[in-house]
Design a binder for these strands. Structure first.
Lengths: 229, 229
DNA sequence: TAGCCAATAACTGTATACAGAAAGAGACGC
DNA sequence: GCGTCTCTTTCTGTATACAGTTATTGGCTA
């Protein structure tokens, strides 16, 4: 009744399973229609069913997954669902970014600069993966600067939920260009510590992402969000 | 291996345990320092340990409880924690109330009127319990009118978290008076469907509640939030 | 060949048992 | 009387088993 002795324990088996599944979700390794079964996760992670089940239930509670009688899967987000999430992002992210603008340390600003330049380099050389990774670091850098950690947790959760079912947009050239443009304006605001400017730019960015989503899904309000993969 | 046959099943044992515990939290029946043990909950609800544990873990995930090696308990919220939650309420509740002002049906408005008049009657006759109950109905009425249900879920969660450790403020005469005054102004705004007005009034209300909390806890930033009970 | 029905398999929900960790209580020594 | 140490008890985390529900598959009939 022992698990692997390879690495010292950082948490329980359930925590380990949770982190492993969240990582797969964030990397887009779980597709729409995939079925996640707790016995399979347990076997893969060399643990019993119960901690794997506990992790899956936590992900259900957080909105990443839905349960069924035949395994767990990604939620089917309708267009209305995604619009609702965008509405929440418009409420939360401008405010968080404004708080970050005030609270940023020089070190955090340096990380933002570095991440942005790398994203731009990826954009200019057509390296989508490099750009994607740099964008994640850019986002993490300003989120790390927000003092209100509960606010950050909410933002990350809703962002992750949408991302789990929609990763393809970054590979659209227009979206990439938009991403670079808004990164540049946000960075300027963060440099100046200009809360109001950052607020407005982030609001515009989320609104532009929302409008783009609507344009891509113009064929019906109840249509399921386009699957990734 | 059967549970009580008294009522037809509405959900699983775990769901039943969750609802039972949430109800106790909302009614303030779980005090600071109380220890909640899954075997005890299971025995009370005539089920085995696992569904009771599942419910407790869900409440931990939602921030209502924290786990320890000796049972689950209410979180120790520092003043900084509570201020952080107030900050989130200031972001979320004005916006939700504004959305409700637009979306309210005549029936929902009628429920708001009815709840407010009853709260005022409770205030005028010194019936704190009646006032408390009516305030809950008032709040539920406008929250029910908000189209964005994810937003409502977040608001309820943070509100419940603070309420689980702080219920006593409503019994303070000044807080009760403030509550009636803001109820009146909100109702006026809901009647007119005036989003901006409702937004501003709700913002003022949450800010006033925050300022009151600070005044009551002026002795130190790291002091634990005053216990209920 | 297609549709329907029955059986089987695959999952979930839950019950029970066990091991281990940590907290609490009691005793002893200073 | 207080502090420390040791032992016991009380919890959690997890493993395994079982029952039930539901989805899937295969066979039969029209």
């Amino acid at each position: 009744m022992s698990k692997s002795d390879e690495v010292p324990d950082k948490g329980s088996n359930a925590d380990e399973a949770y982190e492993a599944i969240v990582q797969r979700l964030r990397l887009g390794k779980i597709g729409r229609g995939d079925r996640i079964v707790d016995t399979v996760i347990a076997a893969e992670l060399n643990m019993s069913r119960m901690p794997a089940r506990e992790a899956l239930l936590r992900l259900v509670n957080e909105g990443y997954l839905v349960g069924s009688t035949r395994g767990f899967r990604l939620p089917e987000l309708t267009q209305a669902d995604v619009l609702e999430i965008f509405e929440i992002r418009k409420i939360l992210e401008p405010r968080a970014a404004a708080l970050a603008a005030v609270a940023l340390t020089p070190d955090q600003l340096e990380q933002l600069e570095s991440a942005f330049f790398e994203a731009r380099a990826g954009f200019e050389t057509g390296n989508a993966q490099m750009m994607f990774d740099a964008n994640v670091r850019f986002r993490n850098a300003w989120l790390n600067a927000v003092p209100n950690r509960r606010l950050v947790a909410m933002i990350e959760r809703f962002f992750d939920q949408v991302n789990a079912v929609r990763i393809a947009t970054l590979h659209d050239a227009e979206s990439r260009q938009l991403s670079i443009a808004i990164g540049e304006t946000l960075l300027a605001g963060f440099r100046r510590g200009d809360s109001l400017y950052v607020f407005e730019q982030m609001y515009s960015f989320v609104e532009a992402a929302r409008a783009k989503f609507v344009a891509l899904n113009s064929s019906g309000a109840t249509k399921k969000a386009r699957a990734v993969k």
